[in-house]
């Protein structure tokens, strides 16, 4: 079973770090295992063989410990932290601005994902907004900024193919962003599995239906998306969800003053 595919190439860096860390730790563990099994066999108790008395506090021993400590710290810790921090800044460091990204407002409720997207007029909060439950449709090529709040308990917006997740809290707007480059059709071709779908899972325990909080994300080409969007916002489903969108500020300016 090899790993799940990725939705774009930038995210493969996470897989790379995982493999790098696996190799690093496996080497160390191989040495540990060799010492463990080797010493157990070589120094087992047998007649005529006496244990060598050493307290291990000789300068040589102290030097060895320091060398190993430095090796572990710089060789393993700092190198892993460097690559990880690099990946973190690249993937999660700078969020896409709201006018150049597809903004999706997610509203998690016990056991379903409510999605809201600005209709073809690009303005959120107008009649032609597109609401949908457990179904997210985004254009490829443009970054997607997902802003999330929950009505009741904690949930976690998790798309395994983006190699990332973000908890959804009641009372605080959290955000998650990724660049969907590979459309669903391209993914199906790559895996030659006709009914492959990008699945959305809930990764934070949220009660009885935690398992069933499954969503589907469809990535369309920009043209297909434009057609879909026009058609959807034409007959914008009259979702009676006004009370859910309670004091959710959509204007970045509100957040700006809070900043300084």
């Amino acid at each position: 079973m090899e790993r799940l595919i990725t939705i774009n190439d930038a995210v493969t860096e996470i897989d790379w770090i995982f493999d790098y860390a696996t190799i690093l730790t496996s080497c160390i563990f191989a040495v540990v295992l060799a010492m463990l099994i080797g010493f157990a066999i070589k120094y087992r108790e047998r007649p005529g063989h006496k244990a060598h008395y050493t307290r291990g506090d000789s300068p040589a021993a102290v030097r060895m410990s320091i060398v190993v400590a430095m090796l572990v710290f710089f060789g393993v810790d700092i190198s892993l932290a460097y690559f990880d921090h690099h990946a973190f800044l690249e993937l999660y460091g700078n969020p896409p601005s709201q006018d150049e990204a597809t903004v999706v407002d997610v509203f998690a409720k016990q056991f379903e994902w409510n999605f809201a997207q600005a209709g073809s007029d690009g303005e959120m909060g107008t009649e032609d907004d597109i609401f949908s439950i457990n179904k997210l449709t985004v254009p490829a090529g443009k970054p997607v900024l997902v802003r999330m709040r929950s009505l009741d308990v904690l949930h976690s917006f998790f798309i395994p193919y983006t190699r990332g997740k973000q908890d959804v809290l009641p009372g605080m707007t959290t955000a998650f962003w990724f660049d969907p480059d590979k459309t669903t059709a391209a993914a199906r071709a790559e895996l030659d599995d006709p009914n492959f779908e990008y699945e959305i899972a809930c990764a934070e325990l949220c009660g009885l239906g935690h398992t069933t909080m499954r969503g589907i994300m469809t990535v369309l080409t920009p043209e297909e998306f434009a057609v879909w969007e026009a058609e959807e916002s034409a007959n914008a489903a009259n979702f009676d969800m006004p009370e859910i969108w309670w004091d959710w500020s959509l204007d970045p300016a509100d957040y700006a003053e809070e900043d300084e």
Binding site: P95, Q98, M172, T173, A253
Partner: peptide
């Protein structure tokens, strides 16, 4: 503070 305000302020 609001830890995610910096994302929303990206305007």
């Amino acid at each position: 503070g609001d830890p995610w305000a910096w994302v929303m302020a990206e305007g």
